[in-house]
Design a protein around this nucleic acid. Structure first.
Lengths: 195, 195
DNA sequence: GTCTATAGGCCGATAGAC
DNA sequence: GTCTATCGGCCTATAGAC
């Protein structure tokens, strides 16, 4: 990966994020050295510090941009039928999680390696996402379409269930994504008492 | 924690496991040094190697004994009503996960730091546990008490949902364990189509 | 923006004394 | 079983040249 000296910030910046995301997800934040990241990018370790203050800032940037991307990607239609909105959320969450499985894994697993203020920032973004699902459940209950004992707990439980798909899904496995979405939607519909 | 020289294998062994479990869960396997573990135990780093071949063996021992404890703790009654068995499983899994949250977190997060053969051993134990739930679902379906599109997927989805309780539960929080069990059982009963 | 070189420090694991 | 001391190595981050 070694290459000649030169300036290519428009390439190196995204590449640092891509390679560190993959390496952190595979081996863990603490286990990956700046030298390994630099090697994967094709620069020397010192060059990384032109893009990031330190290793911690690199991790935070990965998690923060992941959560922002997630929040931006979800487009709800609050005027639609709550069950239709919930089904869309289920399929969206599964697809997004599988499309960004490294970042999803990081966002769950490396929270403890964030400084306290960085942790609070990510937790707040996560709370916003959970609140989006909770809003759908609230509307569904009010419309008499769902029966749920505790909205907040149900939101977290459903998100944990849906995100879990990343732990076993394999491209080209027994089930394709459409079928997986069908099955999880069936489980979700039952869980919220919509049958 | 420093103490005088002496032989106390019956104390040091369990203490090493207890302290390393806690440190690994809090900071991650790779981030914790043998010196830190030794310091928490109250010995010098070299002394640890009288109990474990290396750091990897220590991690494996923690995960393996956790899975064995889990499998030994679950007592099913295959002659009972499948819905009763499922409810017992839900409450058991939540309680066990909360009682062993450090080990649960480790078992999910440090799998990638196991050598390939150690990984296979843990994955096999995990598969045995999932199969126990799958058996309950199978019996429930055959008895016409449950409606599930895919037993294997439903087992993994339910376990992910239930284990998720460890990410937000706080002792003395809004809900006590009994109430949490009620809510998750309600979600589970709906998810398996038992309403 | 990237390089080389390096500072200052911690790492896992082992040897040998007690 | 535990200690002290240490080997050889890798770590993050910075300095200064180009």
């Amino acid at each position: 990966m070694a290459r000649t000296q030169g300036s290519r910030s428009e390439i190196t910046g995204p590449l640092i994020r891509e390679k560190s995301r993959k390496l952190f997800a595979r081996h863990g934040y603490a286990a990956v050295s700046m030298r390994q990241i630099a090697s994967a990018v094709g620069v020397q370790a010192g060059a990384l510090y032109a893009y990031t203050a330190d290793k911690q800032a690199l991790l935070f940037q990965l998690l923060e941009s992941h959560m922002q991307t997630l929040l931006a990607a979800w487009q709800d239609d609050a005027t639609a039928d709550p069950l239709t909105r919930l089904e869309r959320f289920v399929r969206f969450h599964i697809d997004f999680s599988l499309d960004h499985s490294d970042a999803v894994f990081l966002s769950y697993m490396e929270l403890r390696n964030l400084t306290p203020e960085n942790y609070r920032a990510i937790a707040a973004l996560r709370g916003r996402y959970e609140a989006l699902l909770e809003g759908i459940l609230r509307d569904g209950i009010e419309a008499g379409l769902m029966r749920i004992a505790d909205r907040k707990l149900a939101s977290m439980a459903l998100i944990a269930m849906l995100t879990g798909v990343t732990t076993w899904y394999q491209e080209g496995g027994r089930l394709d994504r459409r079928r997986i979405g069908d099955i999880y939607w069936s489980l979700t519909r039952g869980a919220v008492g919509a049958d």
